[in-house]
């Protein structure tokens, strides 16, 4: 009985370095994410440095350096009041939007009569952009603060409403799940709480995440109403006074806060759904 043992093929030294680089960097997800940011800012700096002007014009666009200096200026001169005002507005608008959006969405998805009574006017209001609400917000609300909360509310409310309705409806259309409940003796209330609500959770969660993004999305619009404070207000004010670097800084800060809070919402909602597994292509 001859057993052939295949000798390990000696890998060449550069092949091995390639492997090391691969495990250290390419296989490393945080590294890939940082790389994406480096490429983004590097590309932007490059386009500004060469005064790129081919259909899109970068000549007047502040470069990342200028924005960085504007940011240092801003951060060293008591920025907290601006952050706090903005976060507060987004928070209250978002809170109201989630409570109302999910509540109404569940009822509209579950009861036909509620759908008929509420959905037509809501569908009519849905396509109206937040900026178009500014005049009415000024007229309707007793002070600018509540008007601003209302504008962020508008941004967050509709994605939440629609996702919730879709989630409830798609769970209801899953005949097998509903039948499972029925032949265990479930009444409508049991089916609602044990099947329909958990079944629509993934959809509600994506509404919550999109809604969070949209609330920040509407912040500049909302803070057009602001007299003094707010990250969106600074952005708008810099535009009015043609001071460009702070505009980009404001945009990036809003993007950052929006991304962070969406991420937090995503984490929180995933924690509520321990039964889900997500396997992506190329995932480890």
């Amino acid at each position: 009985m001859a057993v052939t043992v295949s000798k390990p093929v000696p890998t060449r030294w550069f092949g091995r370095i390639g492997d090391v680089l691969k495990t250290l960097f390419w296989g490393n997800r945080p590294f890939r994410r940082v790389l994406a940011l480096v490429i983004f800012f590097g590309g932007w700096q490059f386009l500004c440095a060469i005064n790129f002007d081919f259909f899109i014009n970068f000549q007047l666009i502040p470069s990342p350096w200028e924005v960085l200096f504007a940011t240092i200026d801003f951060v060293t001169s008591d920025p907290w009041i601006h952050f706090r005002s903005s976060i507060q507005r987004v928070f209250f608008g978002y809170l109201a939007a989630s409570v109302l959006g999910i509540f109404l969405g569940v009822l509209i998805g579950w009861f036909e009569a509620v759908e008929d009574l509420f959905l037509p006017p809501l569908e009519l209001l849905r396509p109206i952009p937040a900026v178009a609400w500014i005049p009415l917000a000024i007229l309707m609300f007793p002070n600018a603060e509540s008007g601003m909360v209302y504008i962020t509310f508008i941004g967050a409310f509709f994605p939440m409403l629609i996702s919730t309705i879709r989630g409830v409806e798609s769970t209801l259309s899953d005949t097998v799940l509903i039948r499972v409940g029925q032949c265990l003796g479930a009444n409508s209330w049991h089916i609602f709480k044990d099947i329909v609500i958990p079944g629509s959770m993934p959809s509600i969660a994506s509404g919550l995440t999109i809604g969070m993004g949209n609330a920040w999305f509407c912040l500049v619009t909302a803070e057009i109403l602001a007299g003094r404070y707010g990250v969106g207000y600074i952005t708008w004010e810099s535009y009015v006074t043609s001071n460009y670097p702070p505009i980009v800084m404001g945009m990036l800060l809003i993007g950052l806060m929006g991304a962070l809070s969406s991420w937090a919402v995503g984490r929180a909602t995933n924690a509520l759904m321990p039964w889900r597994v997500i396997n992506k292509q190329g995932g480890g």
Binding site: V176, L177, V180, Q182, C183, G199, M273
Partner: peptide, 19 residues
């Protein structure tokens, strides 16, 4: 109407995924 006196086993996997 359906009731718990008639148990049903479906062809599809039908456990509630969240339980």
């Amino acid at each position: 109407r359906p009731g718990a006196d008639r148990g049903f086993v479906f062809q599809q996997y039908s456990l509630l995924p969240w339980k």
